[in-house]
Nucleic acid binder design. Structure first.
Length: 153
DNA sequence: CGTTTGACTACGC
DNA sequence: CGCGTAGCCAAAC
């Protein structure tokens, strides 16, 4: 009986998560990284910075094969943009697919998280796989308790 | 087989 | 708000 390499399991988890992203929505590399528990032997603050890069590696593998079971085009960077080389065939394919799903880009080629951002799957789905809920990329709604607006009177 | 690079991101200037 | 840097895994050179 052989133990699968940690890296293989990590990739599988990443792809599993990406499969949950609904059409017309997007998720960031950082969000996916946060959903996966910090691997053994790695400091949490270190994983915070490196995790997204591992997610990028996992995505690159399926992007190259254009794996149809993984909607890799719904994964973007924290700025809301496409991270593939601008003008390249994969980048164009990603943008075309997103626009076909109704996702729109602004004048800076960025996507509005408030409209198209994804905050993760159901709690049940997460709990069954021991995964965590990512932070939302949407701008937080103003708390009713806190004075949210500067009153001029 | 040692180096370099990478679909990234948080943080300090 | 833009730019440079660290991070220490994997895959490509």
């Amino acid at each position: 009986m052989q133990m699968p390499p940690d890296q293989a399991a990590y990739y599988q988890t990443v792809w599993d998560i990406v499969r949950q992203v609904p059409a017309g929505h997007v998720v960031t590399f950082g969000q996916i990284a946060v959903m996966i528990p910090v691997p053994e032997g790695i400091e949490p603050d270190v994983y915070q910075r490196i995790g997204p890069r591992w997610v990028g590696n996992a995505m690159n593998a399926v992007t190259f094969r254009d794996e149809p079971t993984v909607p890799w085009h719904r994964v973007i960077n924290s700025k809301g943009g496409i991270s593939l080389e601008e003008g390249s065939a994969p980048a164009t394919r990603q943008r075309t697919r997103l626009e076909a799903e109704g996702v729109r880009f602004d004048s800076k080629d960025l996507i509005d998280f408030d409209v198209f951002g994804w905050d993760g799957p159901d709690d049940d789905w997460l709990q069954e796989r021991s995964l965590l809920r990512p932070h939302s990329m949407k701008t937080p709604p103003p708390s009713p308790d806190e004075p949210q607006q500067l009153s001029l009177f």
